[in-house]
């Protein structure tokens, strides 16, 4: 089996006086979608922000593509090949959709062919190309946030709750876009509360509880084992 694209070893992170991550160890296989699951407040978003470098881990190791990156800045991690879609979408509302995309193309001007493909995936981006991003609807902002991460090829995508609060039609679009990304061989680590989406996209799964990764394995195993779901997350995801 090839080396994982990302691995965390006993990572600990504090936010102000709170000890949030208490020794997270997990790995993200190359070319697969890894779902990060768990109840609210167990440290999923903190894990994503720590991997991205927006929070500093006070202990443990983060290895990305064979290199230790704990000491690297977020900007260096991005340039090394990590794309990030934060939970709050991180849209620059005062900038237009076009300006958001130009900014996301860190290597230079956005690639025309890639942009055309993104327009086919997310047509509203073309419609509102010159509009301030702050005027977009919630779903359109989420499309922009994901498109921004996809404007250049990344080795790993960190995507935090991309379907949160979205209408079913938009969720379907998101799932389609992420499937396409997966088909292209991208490695993805994704936080998702919608278990149906997690089951549809995930190959691999890590469950967190109280600042630690408490279980990891095949998504299919968790999806079919209701007793395991009960034990790990406190309820069966059958209804999801």
């Amino acid at each position: 089996m090839s080396e994982p694209i990302l691995s965390l070893e006993a990572v600990e992170t504090d936010i102000a006086q709170y000890h949030i991550l208490k020794g997270v160890s997990l790995s993200v296989p190359r070319g697969q979608v890894t779902m990060l699951l768990g109840r609210n407040g167990v440290g999923k978003t903190t894990t994503m922000r720590t991997i991205m470098g927006l929070l500093r881990n006070k202990a443990g190791q983060i290895r990305f593509d064979g290199a230790e990156i704990s000491g690297e800045l977020a900007s260096s991690r991005c340039r090394a090949g990590i794309g990030f879609v934060p939970e709050d979408m991180g849209i620059f509302s005062a900038l237009t959709v076009e300006e958001n995309m130009i900014l996301a193309a860190v290597s230079g001007a956005p690639d025309r062919a890639r942009l055309d493909w993104l327009f086919t995936v997310f047509p509203p981006l073309k419609t509102f190309w010159k509009a301030p991003a702050g005027t977009l609807s919630g779903g359109q902002k989420q499309m922009l946030s994901i498109a921004r991460a996809m404007i250049e090829d990344r080795k790993l995508y960190l995507i935090d709750e991309p379907t949160k609060g979205l209408a079913p039609a938009i969720v379907s679009t998101m799932v389609g876009a992420l499937r396409e990304l997966k088909r292209q061989g991208a490695s993805i680590l994704m936080v998702e509360q919608n278990f149906a989406v997690a089951r549809a996209l995930g190959d691999h799964c890590v469950v967190m509880d109280d600042g630690r990764a408490t279980w990891s394995g095949a998504m299919a195993d968790l999806a079919t084992d209701h007793a395991l779901q009960e034990r790990l997350m406190g309820l069966s995801m059958e209804a999801g």
Binding site: V121, F122, T127, A169, G176
Partner: peptide
Amino acid sequence: MSAAPDHTP
């Protein structure tokens, strides 16, 4: 794959 519904503003 499905595409997002487009809306004319």
